[in-house]
């Protein structure tokens, strides 16, 4: 993804040169995705926004030590994950905060109605289909589809194998496709059949 390449470049500029403009650009590129990711873990957008802000401040303060970070995208996501889990542990005194219980509302995405060829009704069906998936599966679908993470990045972040990412994504895609097909108007289905 072009975005991920940009993130890498900006991250390097921040670490190597203390480039404030690159810091701003990095923030703008990653803010929304990280907030949604964190909110899914801590169950609050308000908290998540603070956590993401903390992560960026940490990056700026530690920038000189981060010049050797191999994969900045994964590094930033993992930092966000860890800080979110820590916060959850402190907040709710959970002994074992984990990624197994997620607030999936924060993860939900749907086709952009403005640019879509499908009706609002089908968009709702797609949403429902995604919501019926296990938490982890929803998270993986979002990380790939919305955040543009590579399979190996998702695997590293969630500490699973790339093969699992593949399999989980196939399950999600199948569900979404089924929701679309079940609701496809007859003539449209015909048009596709004969195109």
């Amino acid at each position: 993804m072009i975005n991920n390449e940009l993130i890498r470049l900006h991250f390097r500029s921040v670490c190597a040169e203390g480039d404030m403009a690159a810091y701003d650009a990095l923030y703008r590129l990653m803010y929304s995705r990280l907030v949604h990711f964190s909110a899914a873990i801590v169950g609050s957008f308000h908290l998540a926004e603070e956590i993401v802000s903390d992560v960026f401040i940490m990056i700026w303060q530690k920038r000189q030590e981060l010049t050797n970070v191999e994969n900045p995208v994964v590094y930033i996501y993992i930092s966000t994950k860890n800080r979110s889990l820590n916060t959850l542990q402190q907040q709710k005194r959970h002994r074992h905060a984990s990624l197994d219980m997620l607030d999936t509302d924060a993860l939900t995405i749907s086709p952009d109605a403005e640019h879509t060829i499908i009706s609002a009704e089908i968009v709702q069906k797609i949403e429902a289909a995604i919501r019926s998936l296990p938490d982890r599966c929803q998270l993986i679908f979002r990380l790939v589809k919305q955040d543009g993470l590579r399979y190996k990045d998702v695997a590293e972040l969630l500490e699973i194998s790339p093969k699992t990412v593949d399999a989980q994504l196939a399950i999600a895609v199948k569900k979404v496709a089924a929701a679309i097909r079940l609701n496809m108007p007859q003539e449209l289905a015909q048009a596709f059949l004969f195109s």
């Binding site: 949604h36 957008f45 924060a106 952009d112 589809k145 496709a177 097909r181 289905a189 004969f194």
Partner: peptide, 19 residues
Amino acid sequence: PDVSYAKEVLLQSWKDKQK
């Protein structure tokens, strides 16, 4: 061919439901 439709939808840009 009916899957092409799902492919189109999956490849277009999606947006966040919340926030």
